[in-house]
């Protein structure tokens, strides 16, 4: 799975590279951003809000707002990360993206025990993202529209795949329904990815509460 993910990541990187060039970033600047920020959506949005010269604080806050979902994703990794040595857990978190996080959680449910799956696929995604940025910036708009290849639906298709291993069963869908409703509601009114934070926490809290109630009843 890591190789096709790397390829998909090149395709996304191409899109960012083209956009960064059109925005006026030098190749070195676009590459440095992809290598150190390594978060597609926030980089794309930053290009949309880029000014010449750029507003340092505003763009930093924008990036944090869009990437705020990472905080809860990282929290969900605690049971897995806390047994790892400092360097390994932090290297893993540094390359954590939506895609390899979801893949890691799904594999863990299926019985995979080695957290290296997140670090390994994260590195593959990073290499793809940075080389895609270089290609896109060099080739420019000659690439055409990535939407013509359906590249923009990779993320929803991939997340849909991750649903079945995480599926709690029909009798436990209530937390999922609450999560979806809260996410949709918050997304309409709050910028960034706070909707992921809100939906995830609401669903998790309801699930935890329901489980606790069931345990007290039976135990």
């Amino acid at each position: 799975m890591a190789v096709p993910l790397g390829v998909a990541s090149i395709a996304f990187g191409l899109g960012f590279g083209v956009l960064a060039r059109e925005t006026g970033l030098e190749l070195a600047e676009a590459l440095a951003m992809s290598a150190t920020v390594f978060a597609g959506a926030s980089q794309m949005v930053a290009m949309g809000a880029w000014t010449d010269p750029p507003a340092i604080l505003a763009l930093t806050i924008l990036a944090v707002t869009i990437n705020i979902r990472h905080v809860v994703m990282g929290a969900a990794l605690r049971p897995w990360m806390q047994s790892l040595p400092f360097l390994k857990s932090h290297a893993t978190l540094a390359v954590m993206t939506d895609v390899n996080w979801a893949m890691g959680m799904a594999e863990r449910r299926k019985g995979e025990a080695d957290a290296a799956i997140i670090l390994g696929s994260g590195c593959a995604l990073w290499v793809g993202w940075v080389s895609g940025t270089a290609l896109g910036h060099t080739l420019g708009a000659a690439m055409g529209d990535p939407k013509a290849y359906g590249i923009d639906v990779i993320v929803p298709a991939f997340f849909a795949l991750m649903l079945s291993p995480l599926w709690p069963g029909w009798r436990k869908t209530l937390p999922w329904i609450l999560a979806a409703c809260v996410a949709l509601l918050v997304q309409r009114f709050v910028p960034g990815t706070w909707y992921v934070v809100a939906g995830g926490l609401a669903g998790a809290a309801l699930g935890g509460w329901l489980d606790g109630r069931a345990e007290r009843r039976h135990g």
């Binding site: 979902r69 994703m73 649903l163 999560a179 996410a183 997304q187 909707y195 609401a202 699930g207």
Partner: peptide, 25 residues
């Protein structure tokens, strides 16, 4: 332990569905 551990069990699924729902609609 306790509530936090139980809630953490539900967090991955709730996050995936929260990311996916706006795409679907």
């Amino acid at each position: 332990g306790g509530f936090i551990s139980r809630a953490l069990n539900h967090l991955p699924g709730a996050l995936v569905i929260s990311i996916l729902a706006p795409y679907a609609l």
